[in-house]
């Protein structure tokens, strides 16, 4: 397997706009480690411009079709687009089947669109651990708009709200998605709710249901009022409206100084996550922790010590650094 990348040479080619270099740098980010940090340090000064939109929702809601239609609209407006499509890694084999490109075939001939499929790998489901980093990279590659598609299974899609300026929640009328959405907390993170497959007989009712529950949320005066839009990616309807509302939300954030706040939020969670990651790794590697665990676990088994008492003991003993 190849390794030993010449990062600075790659970055040079990357800045010259070479797609292959960008693609390779993403691979390096995915694999993590020192090389990834070198890349991120290298591009940091150029990452602040791209607008980030997250699309999430249950499997089969038609997210990638919608993504394709949105992309075509934004391309007409001249935006350069990066797409990150994330699918789950199989917990059994560690492999993944990434099929979102099927929906975006004609995009691969457009030099101003870059599509990358990511497997969620170690992460719990909907999102990949390196999504932020890959987003930054595409930002630094000169993309104006970055669309992130995640499969919504369980709680993991909530992370998308930490990564995107605008979160679009995609639902379909069938199988009670509306109720699921409320349960899963999607209602809290969506700036825009899309009821896809609007030709379905229950679409309007399902959309009204979502709108109703949003009204109950009692949003303070002047705050963004989440919107509900009916679309059909298949019939190509409602897409223009969706694109307009994304732009509207962006203007709202800009006018209220919230983009900068979002940036702070993104960077804060970046530092925190990286730190947590390190602490975890360090603890995992720590000989001392392993020793104590080995010696003291018997006491927990035998009921002499409670699990929490052991944690306290470990906390006192282990120093981070």
């Amino acid at each position: 397997m190849r390794s030993g990348y010449d990062i600075s040479a790659l970055l040079e080619r990357f800045y010259a706009g070479q797609v292959a270099a960008a693609a390779r740098l993403i691979t390096i980010l995915e694999n993590g480690g020192d090389d990834a940090e070198k890349v991120l340090d290298g591009i940091f000064s150029r990452t602040d411009d791209a607008y980030r939109v997250g699309l999430t929702g249950p499997p089969g809601a038609g997210k990638s079709s919608l993504l394709y239609q949105i992309t075509k609209r934004f391309r007409k407006k001249g935006r350069k687009i990066g797409i990150i499509a994330i699918d789950p890694t199989s917990p059994f084999s560690g492999g993944a089947l990434l099929g979102d490109r099927i929906r975006m075939q004609s995009l691969s001939e457009d030099p101003d669109v870059f599509v990358r499929s990511l497997a969620s790998r170690g992460s719990l489901g909907g999102i990949s651990n390196c999504t932020d980093e890959v987003t930054d990279l595409l930002d630094a590659f000169g993309k104006d708009l970055i669309l992130i598609e995640t499969v919504g299974v369980g709680q993991s899609e909530l992370e998308i709200s930490e990564k995107a300026h605008t979160v679009v929640v995609v639902l379909v009328p069938e199988s009670g998605d509306g109720i699921q959405a409320m349960k899963a907390g999607l209602m809290e993170i969506g700036d825009i709710f899309v009821m896809n497959k609007s030709d379905h007989k229950d679409a309007e009712m399902a959309a009204a249901e979502i709108a109703n529950s949003l009204r109950l949320k009692d949003i303070p005066e002047g705050n963004w009022n989440p919107r509900v839009i009916l679309t059909s990616a298949r019939e190509n309807t409602g897409i223009d409206e969706l694109v307009d509302v994304i732009e509207e939300h962006r203007s709202y954030l800009e006018e209220n100084g919230l983009i900068a706040a979002k940036r702070r939020e993104i960077l804060f969670s970046r530092v925190r996550n990286a730190l947590m990651d390190r602490i975890e790794k360090r603890l995992g590697r720590s000989e001392m922790v392993r020793e104590i665990m080995k010696n003291r676990m018997d006491d927990v088994y035998n009921g002499i010590l409670t699990p929490y008492a052991l944690v306290h003991e470990l906390e006192k003993t282990v120093k981070i650094k």
């Binding site: 199989s90 059994f92 492999g95 993944a96 089947l97 990434l98 099929g99 490109r101 099927i102 075939q105």
Partner: peptide
């Protein structure tokens, strides 16, 4: 594609035509 996935690889399937 399925077999490679089951063997632990990340498979990008492009679709037809």
């Amino acid at each position: 594609a399925n077999a490679l996935k089951d063997a632990g690889m990340e498979v990008i399937y492009t679709g037809l035509h």
